[in-house]
Every structure is written in structure tokens, then in C-alpha cells.
């Protein structure tokens, strides 16, 4: 479902003496439907960079990244937008929303954008928010004023609202208590069971062991100190 082949990435800082920073080369990995692969490696090894490239958030210097039928490395914006809407979900570490929009609508939005009715989308959103222990009295409020942990759970609810065939999870269990961590791991198991291909970053070794089928060490893709 997700196939990364020989991907390289470098940053060029034009306004800082045109410094070129090579951050990745020869990155390759495959994820089958129903499989969850953990990206591991020290901080700065490029776990998030690789994940952002798969999402189309970072450009790719060379190589290919196939998600379903789309090569994210070369696809036009329009195809990547459609891919993100229907096929590829991403739970980032930070919630970024339009201020003043109620939590329920924030969570329901991904479903509305794939054509679900308002009623169905809100029913699913309510179900997820309840599972993730967000008190019902908060559902009509904007999540921008919530605590960090609550925001993260809203972000997860939003990420799991639509049944994406491929998902990217950036630290979905960080800063969650044991109860909510178990809920999130349950959501990941459910997604695997319905055949989603998942790539995740988990600093929490227990969580990683619970849901991941194997690990890929991203530091093997780090270019050796470029002279």
C-alpha cells in the first residue's frame, strides 16, 4: 500500500550562505495493508522528515513514494489533495484548526469532505470523542482552548474519523494517560484489522510493541557526514 523506494532529501538554506544539508538517502520501505511499521532512530535521524515526505508535506529530491496508485514524489498538488482526502490520513503531533470551530465539527470535517452526510459524520465524531474520554460538555467548544492532552485526543479522533486505507501516526500516544493510551492502541488495532497500512513513530516502547509488526531504523538512511 505504501512503498518508499530509494528516497533522498536535502535542505538548501538560500538565505544562510546556501548551506546544503543532506538529511536522507537511499530510504526504502514497504508497508502492506493491515501492517503497522514503526520508524525508529535517534532524535534528528529523520523519522518525521520521512513521514512528512510520504504525506507530501516535504518535497523529495529523488526516488519514489507510492501510496496506492499515486507517486507522492512527482504527483501534482491536485492528486495529493485527493489522496489526502480519501486515502492517506495523518495524525500530527499538533492540532491546527480554524479558531472558534466547535470540536465536534473539527472531528467530523474529514468525513464531510469525503461526502458523508452531516448526520453520519457527527454521529461518528460523537462516538470517537466519547471513546477518547473527551467530556461531552466540551464538544460544542473550540479545541484551541483545551489542554495539551485533550487537543491531542481531538486530533486523534479527527485522524481516525474516516477509514483511510493508509495512515501516518506521529507520536499518537505521547502524553496520554494509561486509559487513553489503551483506547488509541485499540483504534490502531481496529484500523489494522480493516486493512489499513500504517506507519508510526512511537517513543513509547510498550505502545510500539503492542501494535507494530516490525521496525525500520531510519538512521540507516542518514547520509554519512557530508564533507
Amino acid at each position: 500500500m505504501i512503498s518508499v523506494q530509494d528516497v533522498a532529501k536535502r535542505f538548501v538554506l538560500h538565505n544562510q550562505g546556501s548551506t546544503v544539508i543532506p538529511v536522507m538517502q537511499g530510504a526504502s520501505l514497504d508497508v502492506a495493508p493491515g501492517e503497522c511499521v514503526a520508524l525508529v532512530g535517534a532524535s534528528g535521524a529523520g523519522k518525521s522528515t520521512l513521514m512528512r515526505m510520504i504525506y507530501g508535506n516535504y518535497t523529495v529530491a529523488s526516488g519514489s513514494i507510492r501510496v496506492g496508485e499515486v507517486d507522492v514524489a512527482t504527483a501534482p498538488p491536485r492528486d495529493i489533495l485527493a489522496l489526502r482526502r480519501h486515502t492517506l490520513g495523518y495524525v500530527s503531533q499538533f492540532l491546527r484548526v480554524v479558531p472558534r470551530v466547535p470540536t465536534l465539527d473539527v472531528v467530523a470535517e474529514p468525513l464531510l469532505s469525503v461526502g458523508a452526510t452531516g448526520q453520519d459524520a457527527r454521529a461518528r465524531a460523537r462516538d470517537l470523542l466519547a471513546q477518547l474520554n473527551i467530556p461531552e460538555r466540551l464538544w460544542s467548544l473550540s479545541p484551541t482552548t483545551f489542554s495539551g492532552g485533550e487537543q491531542q485526543r481531538v486530533n486523534i479522533a479527527r485522524g481516525f474519523a474516516h477509514a483511510y486505507p493508509a495512515m501516518l501516526l506521529d507520536e499518537p500516544t505521547a502524553s496520554l494517560d494509561a486509559t487513553n493510551r489503551a483506547v488509541v492502541l485499540g483504534l490502531i488495532q481496529d484500523a489494522k484489522a480493516r486493512g489499513a497500512a500504517i506507519i508510526g513513530i512511537f517513543h513509547d516502547a510498550e505502545a510500539r510493541a503492542a501494535v507494530c509488526d516490525r521496525e525500520v531504523d531510519v538512521s540507516t538512511f542518514t547520509p554519512r557526514a557530508a564533507a
Binding site: F11, H14, N15, R52, G56, N57, Y58, T59, P77, I80
Partner: peptide
């Protein structure tokens, strides 16, 4: 969804909005 960056009448960069803002390629966009 998409962003076009202009400088001196010319389009210097285009792409997905989050990609242009998070990983800008052109010196001016940076």
C-alpha cells in the same frame, strides 16, 4: 489548498500550501 508565490511580477514557486510553507524551495519563499 495550493499556493503561488510571486516576486517582481514572476511566479517563483507553486505547490501545496503546507509544502510551500514548511519546505520552501526558492530563496524568496524561504
Amino acid at each position: 489548498d495550493r499556493l503561488m508565490v510571486m516576486k517582481d511580477g514572476h511566479v517563483v514557486e507553486t505547490g501545496l500550501t503546507d509544502q510551500v510553507l514548511d519546505d520552501p524551495q526558492h530563496a524568496y519563499t524561504q
